[in-house]
Each structure stands twice: as structure tokens, then as C-alpha cells.
């Protein structure tokens, strides 16, 4: 493996890599969109045709009914599958996901956009908090693994990792909203505040977000601390850490060598869980009555709102695909072994 300049890939190579990722990502999104199109078409009872027929029964002319249904689902209910597919893909290109059934007439994109506001920030905060906390504690748990502190930390990780998220959520609600009511029990914000950039509204937002964020943090903290602990223990056994100590490197440097090597594999998982956040957290949003994407998905399923379902799935897919690409590019940026495309 030879390079003109070692470790410094040329700009062209980077552009090619990003381009390749984008093409693959778009292909994946296309595949998922196609599958969700077919599934919605093939669901027993055919909701699209059902809608079309029920509109005719209500007295609409077939042409009117066809147009109305097309507006709802983003594609024509009649005609051959191919024409419908082309129509569906065409509207997708314009980011048109059709209209919701359960909230009549409202565009799916609008609904998703509203819900995303309630999901992205809390889940992002929870993910990052649990990551930071878990990683820091994981390092301590590894370094102090033969002491009481290390045992306690590892135990906390195993316990929290084993407890289902809804148990944590219900427990927190029971304690902080019922037994000792210092926190609101649900909803995203108190209604008495005028939405906008004012202290009362923002304070209420934060107040309502505390329990969901804490629940999310505790639920994923266990995984991070356990993963980080085992990574640190593995790297501690690597020769280069002892070698750094034998060369008399300052503790700070040795610690950085250790931490950076141990945290590397976790970045992939972090990027992927950030991608997953567009799926929201169904349990947490349900428990805290938080109108996020998870709740939207649940509601769309229970009300058989197929356009909304398809749109939500698509958004989740796009989130994961983008996160995958980001994880890959991130790894390229932080791991020189991946950067030069060779084995270590």
C-alpha cells in the first residue's frame, strides 16, 4: 500500500467517496419507497381503492373521486400499477407525500414536520447526554474495575440496560409527577403560554422535556457504559498504552491515547442512533404524551392512515440512510486506518 503522501488522501478521492455514498443512499431510499408503495397497494382491503369506492358511494363522480383520492395518497387509485408508481415517484421527487386521512386535508409533510420538532430535540438531547455520561463513566468503570466504584458503575450499567424504557418512564412519572409532583406528567408545553421566544414558553418547554429526556438518557446510558468499559479494558491491554507509559508520556497523553482508541467504535453506534431518532421513541412519547414522530406513527397505524404511515416510514428510512453515510464519513475522518483504505 503506497501513497504519494501517506495519510493524506487527495481531494478527488474524498469527493469520489462522498459521491459513492450519496448514490448508494439514494438507491436505498428508492428501494424503501418502492417497497412501501407496493405494501400500501397490496394491504388487504386496498385502502386506496376503498377510499375511491367510498367516495363514489357518497355520490361523487368517478373522475372527482379519482382526483380526491389522488390528492389524498399522492397517486392515482385506478389505472395500471406502473402508471401509479410513476405518479407516486414523481410526487416524491417534489417531496409530496400526500395528505393525511385522520387529520383530513393536512399534508403528510406538514404533520411530520410538526411532530419532528417534538422529537428531534429531546431525543437528540437524550442521545448525546447518555453518550457523554455513559462514555465518561465507562472509562472510570474500566480504570477502577478492580475497585468498588468500578463495580458499582458497571452494575448500574447492567441494571439500567436491562430495565425496559417504559418501566423507567413510568417509574419517573410515578415519582416526580405523582408522589412528589415537581414535574408535569405529560404534554410538551403548558397551554397558558404564548408560543414564541419568551421566557415563560421556553421555560415550560424545558420543564416538560426534563422527564422524557432523563428517561431516554437512563434507557440508553447502560449500553454506552458497558460498551465503553469493555473497549477501554481492551485498549488498556494493548501494547502501545504500556509503551507510552514506558516512554514517560504524561498521564494526560496516555489517557487521550486510551480514550480516543476506545471511543472510536462507539461513534458508529452514536451516528446510527442519531439516525434512529426520526423514529422517535414510541414508548416515551406515549407515556409522556409527547406529540413526536413515534406517537405520530402509532396514531397513523391505529387510525389506518396509510399515507401518513408511508410518509413516516420514509422519513425514518431517510434518517437511517443519512446516518449510515454520516457514520462512514465520520469514521473516515477520525480513523486514519480507514482513511487510507488499508488494513492495519
Amino acid at each position: 500500500m503506497t501513497h504519494a503522501v501517506p495519510g493524506r488522501p487527495r481531494l478527488g478521492a474524498i469527493a469520489r467517496k462522498i459521491g459513492g455514498h450519496l448514490v448508494r443512499g439514494l438507491a436505498m431510499i428508492w428501494v424503501v419507497a418502492t417497497i412501501s408503495f407496493v405494501i400500501i397497494r397490496e394491504i388487504p382491503g386496498n385502502p386506496v381503492l376503498g377510499q375511491y369506492e367510498s367516495l363514489i358511494q357518497k355520490g361523487m363522480s368517478p373522475e372527482q373521486a379519482e382526483r380526491a383520492t389522488a390528492v389524498l395518497y399522492g397517486f392515482l387509485p385506478t389505472g395500471n400499477l406502473w402508471q401509479q408508481y410513476v405518479g407516486y415517484m414523481g410526487s416524491l421527487l417534489h417531496l409530496d407525500l400526500g395528505r393525511s386521512l385522520s387529520t383530513p386535508g393536512v399534508e403528510v409533510t406538514t404533520l411530520i414536520g410538526h411532530a419532528a420538532r417534538w422529537t428531534v430535540l429531546p431525543v437528540l438531547a437524550g442521545t448525546l447526554l447518555s453518550f457523554l455520561l455513559g462514555v465518561t463513566m465507562g472509562v472510570y468503570a474500566a480504570i477502577k474495575r478492580s475497585g468498588k466504584l468500578g463495580d458499582a458503575l458497571a452494575l448500574s450499567g447492567s441494571l439500567l440496560h436491562g430495565v425496559p424504557v417504559y418501566v423507567i418512564g413510568l417509574l419517573l412519572t410515578a415519582i416526580f409527577a405523582t408522589l412528589w409532583p415537581i414535574m408535569p406528567s405529560g404534554g410538551p408545553v403548558d397551554v397558558e403560554f404564548v408560543p414564541g421566544f419568551n421566557a415563560g414558553y421556553i421555560g415550560s418547554l424545558v420543564h416538560h422535556a426534563v422527564l422524557p429526556v432523563v428517561t431516554y438518557t437512563l434507557a440508553s446510558y447502560g449500553g454506552w457504559i458497558l460498551a465503553m468499559k469493555s473497549n477501554v479494558v481492551a485498549v488498556l491491554g494493548d501494547d502501545f498504552i504500556l509503551a507510552a507509559e514506558l516512554r514517560g508520556l504524561r498521564r494526560g497523553f496516555v489517557f487521550r491515547y486510551l480514550a480516543r482508541n476506545a471511543i472510536l467504535p462507539l461513534f458508529t453506534i452514536l451516528a446510527l442512533s442519531i439516525g434512529m431518532l426520526f423514529g422517535g421513541s414510541i414508548f416515551i412519547e406515549e407515556i409522556f404524551n409527547y406529540p413526536g414522530l413515534g406517537l405520530l406513527l402509532v396514531n397513523s397505524i391505529s387510525s389506518r392512515d396509510y399515507a401518513l404511515m408511508g410518509g413516516t416510514f420514509l422519513v425514518i428510512t431517510v434518517g437511517i440512510v443519512v446516518a449510515n453515510i454520516a457514520a462512514d464519513l465520520l469514521y473516515t475522518a477520525i480513523d486514519p486506518r480507514v482513511r487510507s483504505g488499508g488494513a492495519a
Binding site: 501494547d239 502501545f240 509503551a243 507510552a244 507509559e245 514517560g248 508520556l249 482508541n261 486506518r337
Partner: peptide, 23 residues
Amino acid sequence: RRARGRQVGYVFQAAQNSLNPLK
């Protein structure tokens, strides 16, 4: 710590793995 490296140099067993792979 100061004596290590400064006064006593150590070439590690399997020095091939004695370097930080990320730097």
C-alpha cells in the same frame, strides 16, 4: 515518569504494536 524515556529508553517487546494507531 521523567526517568522513563529520558534516562532509560525502552524498546518494547513487539515494538511493532508500540505505536498509537490514530496518530
